[in-house]
Structures are given as structure tokens and as C-alpha cells.
Design a binder for these strands. Structure first.
Length: 647
RNA sequence: GCCGAUGUAGCUCAGUGGUAGAGCACUUCCUUGGUAAGGAAGGGGUCAUGGGUUCAACUCCCAUCAUUGGCUCCA
């Protein structure tokens, strides 16, 4: 007999060789039907794998990440089996589960490809194979056996993978006619998979290396129930509807022109209004925290970036230097604001008493992003950072860092990004040549970030190897209204630029000292942030950000005059309003303006004109009854005040 | 940058080897209508660009550009 300990701490005896499935069965038959994988002493196992010694276990159903992982990983094998049948001779790379589904990288061989039209056939084949209820059979093999097997069937990618594995840790999984190198865990059999969808195909370099062969990556998703697939497809539709590129066009927020250039957004009046409101909002917060606005030019001498190290690192992949009529003068479109801000810091001597100094700028920068990377407003070649550089004494670093965290959290709260995560990015300890600066400074900087986040009580994910080349950072990822993750704000510690720019301050000891720099951008960039905000709100912005607060809809053109007097009254009260005086029926005007996501529709007809009122209709909610013009103005003002109130 | 897809009116999209169509939007007229689409008429397109094949190309082929799904990258 062996002892099995459950997550809640209680233990029970089972016969040695009991499986996760058996244990689930002993708890309830229903659980046994739903359990997909099991953690045994910290390792993820198949529920069909015998447990031979004392263990603590945790059972995973579909609802858990581990459960989905096993499900989708098994589905990847099923996809592979389907592809093997449909495309004989196909060679397999890797096929992992991912956040939403799974993929398999395959080499179809010369001249063959998979297109959208083939998706349905593949789905059908997967479901056909799934219904055969084939077991996922695990076997442990020696390295030699593994290489012999895959070598024998010309699976060179698998052989390459096996060569890097240690003998004694290699396992195969076989279902139906398909055998794969795999650690597992997997479902007991294929019948769990009831619904399958091939989502897309894309090229992907073997092992992520652009010098190696490009394989075909087939993305798919599967579910234990058809209804779950249906729901997922609805979610995808919803995401499409929220796409900031689509909404940006519909609401006339921004556009692109081939004549201007790829990745260079043009902000239309309504988009510019929204952006300006965001900028003013942040300026106000920053002022409170002691920031000073500065303004710097869009170009800078190349030597500035040689000094900063950016030229060496990114120069050749960037917009190339602008040449002046005089020979030998080269200027770069600025890819970063920090060198300019360093020069501002250097423009006068600083005392330890003056620190920290905080220079903020909505600085527009230009980076030559690879053409395949451009995407709407989230990845562009010209964008405006809500940048600031804080110069402080080493002993002030942690406190200063915490204050920046406060700003970021306040912004997220105000804009209702309630679900976010923070990631601390440290350098790769095995790859120091990727970074500049001394080990000592790196350690100090990393320590300051870790302590600041701990003292703020934040839950952070730590990623090694993700730091910027000049310092560690803290990045904020938000989840939008339909659960997608976006990276927004960033706070970075930098000991290197102060060194490179020879920045100093006079200490209390009358000696020169080196300040520490913090780079920070709570929004990240205005472009990206607005894009995320659009997708988060589906274009229904909070009132204070809405390009229009209200539209006045006269019942007929007899009331256009009255509508105009209301409009100018409200405009004078700083309420952004216009009159829809088209010769249309009221129902039509309501529909059109609802679709334009105007927060309030003010209907005016005979009643309203006589009593000096407006009939208020809130977007998405309907009729709110009549109000005097004055009351409406105050109502809007108080709603905005409420949205922006602190704490 | 790499692999795949796409590019037709302001927008969303049909379409064919014989030089183009719908809905919405726009203009004009009729209608003056009370909470999500009133009616009629009209204007609008070098079918992304440049080559090639063909008697004939928006359609087939090639290249370029742009957009797009991924990969790689992201100061």
C-alpha cells in the first residue's frame, strides 16, 4: 500500500500502482470522467500512469491550466496524426500546447502547402481519428532506441531533438498510427476530444532560428464539448469587433496613408482629442509627483547616440542618419528621448539637495520596425512615448521607484484596467556580453526593483534574460475586457547612461557623485495605449475621454434652431456637443449615433423647446427622461469628476 | 527581414478572359416624422502599382508596394 496526499493535506492509502484515474474514481465517478491530468510530486503525469510510491497529488480538470494543457497537447498529437494521414511523408518538428490551443510545426516537403481551404478536411480527419478512441500509450525508451526509431523513418527534426536529451529521460507516446517523442502528460484516449478547429497556418523557423528552415506551423484548438468551441468562436468574433484598427476607422480616430509611409499613423481630430485628454491627465498626475515637462527636438546628432550606446546596438537596423549640406554632419531621427534628457540634466550643476529631478516629455520617437512587425497602432515606426527620466541619488532609488509604481497603478485604476500583472525582467546570468555596465550596478538595480515591488505588495513574475541591454525593468501587462494580455507601462533602472553621459551631482561630502536614472512610461506609447484602450472599451470610452460627450438630435428641422442654442450653451460649459441636423427621422438619428458610441443623445422636439429642456438618452441604456440644459451640463461635469476622482 | 493570404466606390464586400456591381455613406428632391434603419432620383472606381501573355486582362503570369496571420526582432 502507498500513501497518497491530497492538496488539502489529508492522505489516504491506495494499492501501489494505482493511477490518477483510479484515485479520481475513488472520490467520485463524475470526477473520474472529468479529470485530465495529475500532478504527482510536482510532476505532471498522465492519469493512466501507475503511481508506485507515496506521493502528493493534485488532479486537474478542463477548468485548470494543467488540464487544458494535457488536453491541447494531446490534441497536437491528434493533429499530427491527421496530417500524417492527409500528407504522407510529412516530417514533424514540435507540437506544444499554447495559451489558447496548440500548434504543430511540420515540414510538408517541397511544393506542398496547407491553405485555409484545407482546414475543414483536417478538422474532419482529426474528429474521425478522435472517435476511434485510441489510447495515448506511454513508453520509456533509451536514447539509442529513440534515435533508431526516428532515424529509421527519416524524422530528422525529432532526431535532432533527441540528441539533446539525456538518456533515461526519454519517453514516447503513441496513439493510433502516430508515435511522438514527448514528455507528456496526455489524455487517456482520443475520445475526450469532441470539437476541433484549425485556426491558421503560418511559417515558423525551425527552433526559432531565422537561419534555419522555415516549417509550416498549423494552429488549432480543441474542446471536450462542441458548445465550448462555439463559445470560443463567439469570443474570436467579439475580438474582431473590438479590433482597434476597425474601430479606429469607424470612429475616425486615426488612419494611415501610403503616401506618408508605412507604420506612420495620422491622428484624426477625434483621435487627437482623445489622446490630448490622456496626455493632460497624465501631465496633471505627474505635476503632483514633482515632474517637470521638457521639450526636445525630433532629431539629434549621431554622436549623441554613439555616446548612449544605442547607435552601436541598433544603428544599422534603424532609420539611417540624415546628412546636412555640410559634409560629415549626421543626425538621427531620435529613437529614444533619454540622451536628450541627459543633456538637459547636464545643462547645469546639481546638488544632492536638488535630487531627484524628474524630466517628463511626450516625446515622439522613430524606430525602423521590420515590415512584418507593423500592426495597427500597436507596432508603428513613429510613436510618442509618455516618457520621463528621473535622476536620483542611489539611496533614493527604491523610494523613487515605488512612486512610479503608484502612478502606474493609479492610471490603471482610473482607466479600469483592473486585471494586470507585473513582470520583473532581469539579465541572463549566463550571457553577460548581451548587456552593458558593471556587475555591481546590475545587482544593485535588480535588488532595488525586487524590493520596491515587494514593499508595494505586488505579485510579480520574474523573467531572467528579458532585461533591456542597459538595465533591469518592471513591465506591466494588462488584461482587457475579453481577457487578452497587453504589455503597457514600463519602469527601467539604468546605471549606464549616467556613466556614459558623465552625469554627476555634488554630494554633502563636497565630492562629485553619479546619479541613478529611471526611465519610465506608464502608458508605454500613446499609440499602443490608445489601441489597447479601444480594444478594452470596444470604443465606448469613459466620458472624460470621449471625443464627443453628447449629440443633439432635433425631432424635425423645425427644432434645429433650438438644438443650436442648446449646443452653444453646452459648448460654452466645456461639453463637447454637436447637432445632428440631417433630414432624417429620430429613430435613424438615434441608431446612427448609438453606433458612433456617442455617450449621450439629447433629443429635442416641441416639448423640450417649450420647457428649455433636453431628453437624455444614454448610449447603450436608453431613455433617461428630461433635464434642463443647465442640469445636464452639471450632470456631465459631475460624471467626469467621478471618473477622475482619486483614491 | 522570412513564409502564407489579401488588395474592386469613402466604408463593408460580390463579380467575370470581351473595358464593373450591391448595401451603407454622400448630393438633390419628397417627407416634418418622439427613442436603433421613411421614400425616390443622382454623383462617384486607371478594379493597389509596373511589366508580361493574349485579338482582348479587373480576371492569367511575374515584379513592386501596402495590408494581414504567424516567425524572428522590439532601445
Amino acid at each position: 500500500m502507498i500513501n497518497i496526499t491530497f492538496p488539502d493535506g489529508h492522505a489516504r492509502e491506495y494499492e501501489a500502482g494505482v493511477t490518477g484515474f483510479d484515485i479520481a474514481q475513488s472520490i467520485s465517478p463524475r470526477l473520474a470522467k472529468e479529470v485530465l491530468s495529475v500532478t504527482v510530486n510536482g510532476n505532471l503525469w498522465d492519469i493512466a500512469r501507475p503511481i508506485t510510491e507515496d506521493a502528493s497529488i493534485m488532479l486537474h480538470k478542463w477548468e485548470t491550466e494543467e488540464g487544458k494543457h494535457a488536453f491541447w497537447h494531446s490534441s497536437a498529437h491528434l493533429l499530427a496524426e491527421a496530417l500524417q494521414e492527409l500528407y504522407p511523408g510529412v516530417k514533424f518538428g514540435i507540437g506544444p500546447a499554447i495559451e489558447n490551443g496548440f500548434y504543430y510545426d511540420v515540414d510538408l516537403g517541397e511544393g506542398r502547402q496547407i491553405t485555409d481551404a484545407d482546414f475543414e478536411t483536417i478538422e474532419q480527419k482529426m474528429l474521425e481519428l478522435a472517435s476511434q478512441k485510441n489510447e495515448y500509450k506511454r513508453s520509456e525508451v533509451s536514447k539509442k532506441q529513440a534515435i533508431d526509431y526516428f532515424g529509421g523513418i527519416n524524422e530528422e527534426y525529432k532526431v535532432e531533438l533527441i540528441n539533446e536529451l539525456e538518456d533515461g529521460t526519454i519517453s514516447f507516446y503513441k496513439q493510433g498510427s502516430f508515435t511522438d517523442l514527448c514528455r507528456g502528460p496526455h489524455l487517456p484516449n482520443t475520445e475526450f476530444i469532441k470539437a476541433a478547429k484549425v485556426l491558421s497556418v503560418a511559417g515558423a523557423y525551425w527552433r526559432g532560428d531565422e537561419k534555419r528552415k522555415q516549417l509550416t506551423r498549423v494552429y488549432g484548438i480543441t474542446f471536450p464539448k462542441q458548445t465550448l468551441l462555439d463559445e470560443y468562436l463567439v469570443l474570436l468574433e467579439e475580438a474582431k469587433k473590438r479590433d482597434h484598427r476597425k474601430i479606429g476607422k469607424e470612429l475616425e480616430l486615426f488612419t494611415f496613408s501610403q503616401n506618408v509611409g508605412s507604420g506612420l499613423p495620422l491622428w484624426l481630430p477625434k483621435g487627437a482629442m482623445l489622446r490630448e485628454k490622456l496626455e493632460n491627465f497624465l501631465k496633471k498626475v505627474q505635476k503632483k509627483y514633482g515632474y517637470e515637462q521638457v521639450i526636445t527636438p525630433h532629431i539629434g546628432s549621431k554622436s549623441l547616440y554613439v555616446t548612449s550606446g544605442h547607435y552601436e546596438k541598433y544603428g544599422k537596423d534603424s532609420f539611417q542618419p540624415i546628412l546636412t549640406p555640410q559634409k560629415g554632419e549626421e543626425f538621427l531621427l531620435k529613437p529614444m528621448n533619454c540622451p536628450h534628457h541627459c543633456e538637459i540634466y547636464k545643462s547645469k550643476p546639481h546638488s544632492y539637495k536638488d535630487l531627484p529631478v524628474r524630466y517628463a516629455e511626450f516625446g515622439t520617437v522613430y524606430r525602423y520596425e521590420q515590415s512584418g512587425e507593423l500592426h495597427g497602432l500597436t507596432r508603428v515606426r513613429g510613436f510618442t512615448q509618455d516618457d520621463a527620466h528621473l535622476f536620483c541619488r542611489p539611496d533614493q532609488l527604491k523610494e523613487e521607484f515605488k512612486k512610479v509604481i503608484d502612478i502606474v497603478l493609479y492610471i490603471f485604476k482610473t482607466l479600469k484596467f483592473e486585471d494586470f500583472t507585473a513582470q520583473i525582467s532581469l539579465r541572463d546570468p549566463n550571457n553577460h556580453e548581451k548587456y552593458i555596465g558593471s556587475d555591481e550596478n546590475w545587482e544593485k538595480a535588480e535588488q532595488a526593483i525586487i524590493e520596491a515591488t515587494q514593499e508595494k505588495g505586488m505579485n510579480c513574475v520574474v523573467e531572467t534574460g528579458e532585461a533591456a541591454f542597459y538595465g533591469p525593468k518592471l513591465d506591466f501587462m494588462v488584461k482587457d475586457a475579453i481577457g487578452r494580455k497587453w504589455q503597457l507601462g514600463t519602469i527601467q533602472v539604468d546605471y549606464n547612461l549616467p556613466e556614459r553621459f558623465d552625469l554627476e551631482y555634488m554630494g554633502s561630502d563636497n565630492q562629485k557623485h553619479r546619479p541613478v536614472m529611471i526611465h519610465r512610461a506608464p502608458f508605454g506609447s500613446m499609440e499602443r495605449f490608445v489601441a489597447v484602450l479601444i480594444e478594452h472599451t470596444a470604443g465606448k470610452f469613459p466620458l472624460w475621454l470621449s471625443p464627443d460627450h453628447a449629440v443633439i438630435l432635433p425631432i424635425s428641422d423645425k427644432f434645429n434652431e433650438y438644438a443650436k442654442t442648446v449646443c452653444s450653451f453646452l459648448n460654452n460649459s466645456d461639453i463637447r456637443t454637436f447637432v445632428d441636423d440631417r433630414n432624417e427621422k429620430i429613430g435613424k438619428k438615434i441608431r446612427d449615433n448609438e453606433l458612433k458610441r456617442i455617450p449621450y443623445l439629447l433629443i429635442v422636439g416641441e416639448k423640450e423647446a417649450e420647457s428649455g429642456t433636453v431628453s437624455v438618452r444614454k448610449q447603450g441604456e436608453g431613455d433617461r427622461g428630461a433635464m434642463t440644459q443647465d442640469d445636464f451640463a452639471r450632470f456631465i461635469e459631475s460624471e467626469i469628476e467621478e471618473e477622475l476622482k482619486e483614491n
